[in-house]
Amino acid sequence: MVLRLHYNLEKLSMGLVGAIILAASVGGLVEIAPLFTIDETVEIPADLRPLTPLELAGREIYMREGCYACHSQMVRSLADEIDRYGPYSLASESAYDHPMLWGSKRTGPDLARLGGKYSDAWQVAHLTDPRAVVPASIMPAYPWLMQPLDTSGLPGALATLARLGLPYDEAMIAGAEADARAQAAPDGAGTDAFRERHGDRPVQRAFDGDPSRLTEMDAVVAYLQSLGTQTEAARLAQEGTAP
């Protein structure tokens, strides 16, 4: 009976097409559709902050250089991972990540809890020549990160992300370039405006060691130092379980 049905189906190209689409849609619909009730199922923590323009520029460079191919940003809920990296990652922590950078391979260690773990100077030295700091490292060197940062794309980037639902307001979009410069130049002229738009939590430092210039290194290090610090939700939820 079933064979007979299939015997006839094989004579109908559009029938095969329809049947293939039907059979291949069920799984995706069942698994993906419920995730779109995400607003109800994943509570966005009150303290979750979007990346600052400088950190976002750093994230773009992180993607450009393909860092995600060797570094994950997703601590699994396993004892050894919590002991090694810190609290396991929550869905809400990457709610603002377009795209997510959870990664799939750890040729190098996980970076989800990297923020604050090493000094800026260490990060700069390590990115410039990893084996100068960690002799056994197999990470490539990124000496070209010392080139000036092109900030011209930042307002557009923030505006696009705002259209996708991120809490960037008009002032943040308009001031994106100035804020990128201000975050890497402590005590500079733009500090007050930067703090007004982005609050007290983002760190403001001369990430590459020189406040007078804005380099790609500033952006990458600012981004790396922000990892795991956009919300305290994971740490608070796992108080006592984490080191």
Partner: peptide, 23 residues
């Protein structure tokens, strides 16, 4: 969503856990 129609940069509309599942 492209940042500009005249540029190569775009942002995926999916974020976080949805993006992970779809990816």
């Amino acid at each position: 969503l492209p940042v500009s129609w005249a540029g190569s940069k775009s942002y995926t509309v999916w974020a976080g856990v949805q993006d992970a599942m779809i990816q």
